[in-house]
Amino acid sequence: MTVDLIFQQLLIGITNGMVFALIALGYSMVYGVLELINFAHGDLFMLASFFALTLLGALGASNASPGLLAVELVAVVGACALFGAAVNVGLERVVYRPLRNAPKLAPLVSAIGLSFIFQNLGLFWGALPMDVFGGGTKAAAPKAFPDLLPNYNLFGESSSFRLTPKDLVVIVSSLAVMAALYALVKHTKLGKAMRAVAHDPRAARLMGIDVERVIAATFAIGGALAGFGAVIYGLYINTVSYQIGYQNGLYAFTAAVLGGIGNIAGAVVGGLVIGIVRAFSDQLIGAQWQQAVLFTILIVILVFRPSGLLGAHAPEKV
């Protein structure tokens, strides 16, 4: 394995890891305030991807001039983030809130149910004649997401190391969003309230924090991150299908737990670790072993760090 290949795989790992991290943040934040593993989150990501595809088609983005395209992309990112936030808040209101006092695993089943509903909706969405880029009526087949970002090698096509503007857009925009999120959680009143609720909902309520509002805000942020991630990932891998939520969701959940569930920096670190492990396992061991390698490493990490990479060791309750 040569040096350029090492960097190449590292780049691929980081780029994918960023997207896992974006979804994982949604898992992790929701878990922080509600202790709910929101299994529908990956499928929300999928629906947002379809939404983005439909919007881009309606805007005719593949034929737009570069300047207009940039404007359109920003608009689509905003719209998808809103879409994700709205759907997630709606779900919280309709499905999860009535289960606030239910046993811990009841909302988990609701989330699994929602995940099925979303996948079915994705199938229907895929069946719509979208008049986008040739259109399509094959419900289940993956759809091509327009390849809008420039995909040439910044080091020249003959170079053995390949870095494209596309990679940079994914990495830089994800980092920007994460930084914004960090600032929000660390420095705003809402962020403080979120941390308080995550730490102890009862005490937070006693201190006059509107816990329900904070929970809704958390769902909104998580959904917006998924919506943002959906556009970015769509532009990166150029595919939408009703199944893309499955593995992304699985990896994001894994990333959230690996980093220390409820821990925001942990989710990012977890996502990066998974992305990088995947890439190097493909390179060194073979793609058919990817998941075995990934989960074996994960089990070993958790055996030695039972609360995740960055998770604080939970004190025994007395």
């Binding site: 737990v257 569930i261 998941q291 994960l298 055996v303």
Partner: peptide
Amino acid sequence: TLRLRGDYLALVTLGFAEVMRV
């Protein structure tokens, strides 16, 4: 994995099943 709690245990068992499938 005796030390693991709650969702960490969930992830380890999930991972074990994936490893087994592969």
